[in-house]
C-alpha cells in the first residue's frame, strides 16, 4: 500500500509542479507587482498604495466600484437566467426523442464555441445595425433600425448578459440533462400518484432534486463570467467598465506606474473568484460526505 502511494505521488509530481509554477508563480508575480515592487522602474519598496488607490482614491475608486457593481450584476443575472432557461429547456424536451436530439446537438455545438465567436454573433444579431433590427424595420414594426433599443455596447451590459446566457445555458443544460436522466421519472410518478399536480411536482419534487447540482454549477459559471475578459471587451462600454477589461487596460497603459494598480485589480478579481471556488468545493465535499 505504502509503495503504491509513493508511486502515485512520484508520478503526479512533474505535472503538479508545472501547474503550481504556472498558477502560483503567476499569482505570486502579480502579487509582488501589486505591492509596488517593480525593479524595472527602480521601485523596490513594498506597500499597499495600489490597493488603496483602486479602492479609495478619487481617481480610480468610482471606476472600480461601478465596475464591481456591473460585474456582479452581469454575472448574477446571466447565471440566473442561463440556469432558468436551461432548466425549462431540459424539462420541456427530455421526454421527446426528437427535441432531445436537436437540443443536445445545438447545445453540444455551443459548448466548445469560443466566447469571442459568441460575442460576434451577438453583435451580428442584436446590435442596432444587426439582423434583428433590420428585420423588424423591414416588417415595419420599428420605423428604422436606429429605433431598435441599444442592447449591445450599452451601459447595463445587456449584450454581455445575452452572450453569457447563450453560452452558459449550454453548460447548465448538459449538466441538467444528465441529472434528470439519472433521476428517472419515478419520483415524479410517485408524487403524481400521491396527488401532486404539474406545478407541485415541479416545485416539490424536480426543483429540490436538481437544486444541488444546479447551485454548484451556478457557482462555477458565476466565477467564470466574473473573471472573463473577451466578451465585455467586445460588447461593453467605456464607462461603466467591467473589472477584467479595466485590469487589462491598466496593464496596456504605457505608464508603468499604472502597472501596480492593474495587478492589484487582478488580484482582487482572482481573490473573489477563488473564494467562490473554495465555496464550491466546500459545498460539493459536504454533500459527498453526507451521501
Amino acid at each position: 500500500m505504502g509503495g503504491d502511494k509513493t508511486k502515485i505521488i512520484l508520478s503526479i509530481t512533474p505535472p503538479l509542479l508545472i501547474i503550481i509554477l504556472l498558477f502560483y508563480g503567476g499569482i505570486f508575480y502579480g502579487l509582488v507587482q501589486s505591492l509596488g515592487y517593480q525593479p524595472a522602474i527602480g521601485k523596490y519598496e513594498i506597500n499597499l498604495d495600489a490597493y488603496y488607490n483602486i479602492l479609495f482614491s478619487e481617481r480610480y475608486a468610482k471606476l472600480f466600484w461601478t465596475g464591481l457593481a456591473l460585474n456582479l450584476w452581469v454575472s448574477f443575472v446571466s447565471t440566473f437566467l442561463a440556469a432558468v432557461l436551461a432548466l425549462f429547456a431540459a424539462l420541456a424536451i427530455r421526454k421527446t426523442f426528437f427535441g432531445k436530439t436537436v437540443c443536445n446537438f445545438i447545445y453540444s455545438l455551443n459548448l466548445p464555441m469560443p466566447h469571442l465567436v459568441v460575442a460576434v454573433g451577438i453583435i451580428f444579431v442584436f446590435s442596432q445595425s444587426g439582423l434583428l433590427a433590420r428585420m423588424l424595420a423591414q416588417l415595419n414594426i420599428i420605423a428604422s433600425p436606429g429605433d431598435f433599443p441599444v442592447l449591445v455596447k450599452d451601459k447595463y451590459g445587456v449584450g454581455i448578459i445575452l452572450a453569457y446566457i447563450w453560452k452558459e445555458s449550454a453548460f447548465f443544460f448538459i449538466i441538467l440533462m444528465s441529472v434528470l436522466q439519472s433521476l428517472g421519472e419515478n419520483f415524479e410518478e410517485l408524487a403524481q400518484s400521491l396527488g401532486a399536480n404539474r406545478w407541485q411536482r415541479f416545485r416539490y419534487v424536480i426543483l429540490p432534486l436538481v437544486m444541488p447540482s444546479l447551485f454548484s454549477a451556478s457557482i462555477i459559471v458565476f466565477a467564470f463570467s466574473f473573471g472573463a475578459y473577451e466578451v465585455p471587451a467586445l460588447l461593453g462600454v467605456i464607462y461603466p467598465q467591467m473589472l477584467p477589461v479595466m485590469a487589462f487596460e491598466f496593464f496596456l497603459n504605457p505608464d508603468l506606474n499604472a502597472r501596480s494598480e492593474g495587478m492589484a485589480l487582478s488580484i482582487i478579481i482572482a481573490l473573489i473568484v477563488m473564494i467562490l471556488v473554495i465555496f464550491y468545493f466546500w459545498l460539493t465535499q459536504t454533500r459527498i460526505r453526507k451521501d
Binding site: N186, F187, E189, L190, Q192, S193, L194, G195, A196, N197, V205, P208, L209
Partner: peptide, 19 residues
C-alpha cells in the same frame, strides 16, 4: 388524471424523497 384518482402506488425501491 393520475393525481385525482386517489390510487396510490408504492414503488419497489421505496422512493422516499431524500430532501
Amino acid at each position: 388524471p393520475t393525481e385525482k384518482r386517489n390510487v396510490v402506488m408504492v414503488f419497489q425501491n421505496y422512493l422516499l424523497f431524500p430532501y
